[in-house]
């Protein structure tokens, strides 16, 4: 394992300290328990957004804390859900009296920990709504799985709902909007390499030099199918086809196309992927009205990418375009 770290057991704490050092002017980083809040929290009368998840997905979620997006984020250990005490502390810190929305990615641990946190927060008289994001089409949504995973649509939901909360919309409306983004967004990813968690010290799964894993999640969990590496054009077809067919996205639709890097893939390759995606969507009569290209929801040092498509209407487009000022995403601010 080659990593720029000191000791594996200190990775999360030291990364958080570095994050605090870099962005301390606009974010407050708490330890014991660990959570990140925007410096002006709580914002009186505004619905507050809290998310969280295992570390190793940077910039998500801490990098999305700030005006126009999240009010707080709770980082867990690497690929491990944060705990209810962190979520409760974050919820208390950002509650401005208009209620708190928990945006939860659909993983067994995240869902259970956020459920316990919501029970604790409600006991303290805080109004909490939770929306679970489950946009990954690689997983069969059935009684026989933990359900679809929350991946790329999480970033889009946090941006769009953050803008709505900033407009002063009530909790029920912001939560409904979050459910709509989840319902209208779909994703799928592939890996060219596994990732290596600092504690394990070796790749989570073995992938041959000429192999790729299709349908991966964001924790180094193997995907659904292993096959020979293909060109960017063929790879985009393998990812986009199940995404398009699932909702479905059809000719005449306008979408936000999000090409996400898994952490170890150069931006240059992501541009090639986006170019192929735009071409493929054009052939299908689907218009790319907005796009996002870059590494926003990552899996440590995994090479690969994911594709997320979100149906856009006028309202969602306006909310996407609204100002945002976070370490990970910033425009018009």
């Amino acid at each position: 394992m080659k990593k720029l770290i000191n000791r594996p057991e200190d990775v999360v704490r030291e990364a958080l300290e570095g994050f605090a050092a870099a962005y301390g002017d606009r974010l407050t980083v708490h330890t014991e328990p660990a959570y990140v809040v925007r410096a002006d929290a709580p914002v009186a009368g505004k619905v507050a957004l809290v998310s969280g998840g295992g570390s190793g997905h940077e910039p998500m979620h801490g990098g999305f804390v700030g005006p126009g997006m999240l009010d707080a984020a709770c980082p867990g250990e690497v690929f491990t859900s944060p705990t209810p005490d962190q979520m409760l502390a974050a919820t208390q810190a950002v509650n401005g009296g208009a209620g708190v929305l928990h945006i939860v990615k659909n993983y067994t641990g995240d869902v259970m920990n956020f459920e316990m946190a919501a029970e604790l927060a409600r006991d303290e008289g805080i109004t909490v709504e939770q929306v679970v994001i489950d946009d990954d089409v690689a997983v069969q949504d059935s009684l026989y799985t933990a359900g679809r995973r929350g991946v790329g649509a999480t970033v889009l939901a946090e941006k769009i709902c953050g803008a709505a909360a900033e407009q002063g919309r009530p909790l029920r409306e912001v939560a409904e909007l979050c459910r709509r983004v989840n319902a209208e967004g779909r994703s799928m990813g592939l890996a060219l390499t596994s990732c290596t968690t600092p504690m394990a010290g070796k790749p989570t799964f073995d992938l041959g030099a000429d192999e790729m894993e299709l349908g991966i999640g964001i924790h180094g969990e193997p995907g659904r199918e292993r096959r020979a590496v293909v060109t960017a054009r063929e790879a985009v077809e393998l990812l986009a086809t199940p995404v398009l067919d699932d909702l479905p996205f059809e000719a005449g639709d306008a979408v936000l196309a999000f090409v996400n890097g898994m952490g170890g893939t150069p931006l240059m390759e992501l541009y090639i992927v986006f170019n192929e995606l735009q071409r493929l969507l054009g052939d299908r009569g689907v218009t790319v009205a907005r796009n996002l290209v870059g590494s926003y929801i990552t899996s440590l040092d995994m090479a690969g990418c994911s594709i997320t498509l979100l149906h856009l209407d006028e309202e969602l487009t306006a909310l996407w375009d609204a100002p945002v000022n976070t370490p990970g995403l910033r425009w018009k601010a």
């Binding site: 295992g54 867990g76 491990t80 859900s81 705990t83 067994t108 259970m112 459920e115």
Partner: peptide, 12 residues
């Protein structure tokens, strides 16, 4: 355990 384990094992 709830506040230190994390993941699914913590709540369980």
């Amino acid at each position: 355990l709830v506040s230190t384990v994390g993941g699914a094992a913590g709540p369980l």
